[in-house]
Design a protein around this nucleic acid. Sequence first.
DNA 1: CAAAGCATGTAAATAGTTACATGATTTA
DNA 2: TAAATCATGTAACTATTTACATGCTTTG
Lengths: 185, 185
Amino acid sequence: MPGPAPGDLPVSAYVILGMLRLGARSGYEVKRAVEVSVRFFWNISHAQIYPNLERLERDGLISGHADPQGRRPRRVYEVTPDGERALALWLHTAEPMPFEVRDLATLKLFFADALPPSEALALVHAIRLRSEETLARFERQSAPPARTADAGGAHYPLLSLRLGIAVHQALVDACDALERELYCP
Amino acid sequence: MPGPAPGDLPVSAYVILGMLRLGARSGYEVKRAVEVSVRFFWNISHAQIYPNLERLERDGLISGHADPQGRRPRRVYEVTPDGERALALWLHTAEPMPFEVRDLATLKLFFADALPPSEALALVHAIRLRSEETLARFERQSAPPARTADAGGAHYPLLSLRLGIAVHQALVDACDALERELYCP
DNA sequence: CAAAGCATGTAAATAGTTACATGATTTA
DNA sequence: TAAATCATGTAACTATTTACATGCTTTG
């Protein structure tokens, strides 16, 4: 009778649940919301969304109804009380929470002794540029909706954004220092 | 993840190639080397290592020979000239290098408005502790072998370690600030 | 002699990506 | 009218994790 225990659902299902709760309505809107927010610490692809929506509805954690825009088909969803409970349960359940990074650029830098110095330097440069672009993107795409959510009472999107900014600012600074050292050793 | 790189090898194969090049000899030693170094920006599990070693040997990128220690079986490998070339080619090949993070803790923090304030604060605390432990682990486990490699002419393991330190120090500082604000808003 | 660490492997399941597939609506 | 964006979905493939499975050697 009680909804599925945490662990029954893949993480992407909780992301969907959370985004619907924060105001996204369709699968498409969920994907867009992910793209400008949690995407920086947990990405999901659109191919994961639609099967998960079906499953969440089957499990009674969300309820959906057709809501076509003109002739364009669309299905919108809202979180049910069971869904609220499942999300809260997952959020407060203790489980291992490793910080997993997959970064080809730093990985290549680790092995860069097998590379001519100029190409190694180019890697550091690429890492710096990437984080600078990420910071710009935070400002342009992530901060506005996070501030809107903040004004609406959801404060944590903006707070977690600050962690992302801190990480990428640190990378920019570290690369800057490295570039100086490598250029003039 | 980033699909197979040039030469159609999975990234984990290049990690293995790189670690063998830096002095690891057996699959076990590769796993240990990963565990204290690249694991912080690209983890691989031991179940990926043995099939990849087989494949790399079949492709002629490494050569292996049995080298049992007493009765305990062991197979050691070294990188062939072809393997050196494949690694260098991969390293200098331009490809998308996104910074992908998977972090349940920050993800949960993003949705923490569905949680009582004390539990949200506990999440921030957990993130700070985790990065503090990671920093300690860098000092204890990663820095010594990286310094050894540095003395032996491989400078980039130590340089890439500095990026990891910068990231986790930034997370500690940001969480510290957040904890103060959330405790006394 | 027990525990920790060394050493290797496989099978099954899960997760995730990419490509395929379609079509409507809005905007320049 | 073309391009961008909205919108949804599936199939095939690839990658990855977890659990299973084994057995030796060193150290306390």
